[in-house]
Nucleic acid binder design. Sequence first.
DNA 1: CCTTTATTTCGTTATTTGGCGAAATATAAA
DNA 2: TTTATATTTCGCCAAATAACGAAATAAAGG
Lengths: 114, 114
Amino acid sequence: MRAVLKIFKALSDGQRLRILKMLEIRPLCVCEITDVLQLASSTVSKHLSILREADLVIDDKDGKWVNYSLNTSAREQYINQILPLIAQWLPDDTTVLRDAEKVQAVDRNMICGV
Amino acid sequence: MRAVLKIFKALSDGQRLRILKMLEIRPLCVCEITDVLQLASSTVSKHLSILREADLVIDDKDGKWVNYSLNTSAREQYINQILPLIAQWLPDDTTVLRDAEKVQAVDRNMICGV
DNA sequence: CCTTTATTTCGTTATTTGGCGAAATATAAA
DNA sequence: TTTATATTTCGCCAAATAACGAAATAAAGG
């Protein structure tokens, strides 16, 4: 039950849902997500660690960047079953749509460290 | 997004997950659930109202009793998709199994108002 | 080596949440 | 109508959570 609870707790926050929906588009680094959500980078980092602890996302170190992506090949069935559900949810949510547009436009070399 | 968040928040508590797993067996009244979870009835009532607000359960008034059951015919797809997932999760969880045994044995006329 | 950039960790604060008991409500039974 | 039972609402407290900024860590580039 511990694992399931961790997953639902991770999913029960608006910012983290937004992050997951953004990651459906493509992998993102912390500062790209920070730019979209308009939160402190420490806050975004914390959200990502909660998603990672729940096995919903994985992180990939690439030089000074850490790329986060959906854990689409998780060992746990919970993740394999819930991520596809979320992927088909909220297609018309205004916040999610606006975030998606921002993700399309964002370039990490432009926005990070400005 | 509000509706989805409500659902995930409702699911992100251990006692509420236990309640949902118990309701998979059969509809239950507040005092039966109170007996299994060993919480104050006011606390159980609050948990049930959160599950009801999320549309995960429905309540049926029957005299002095209020029977709660899974909302298996919800209008929202979120509910229709997530309840079956939860139904197949945690089949071997010790707490869930112990709760299930208690539900089998419980008789509202015996335990309520003792 | 030193500086810059990206990220994480830590400490603090405000808000939310889960728990209880007492009081209020509703219904059944006497 | 009075009493008993089931449930909900309310007010309170303790614990958990989301947010921030500052400090620590890690890697790139001069």
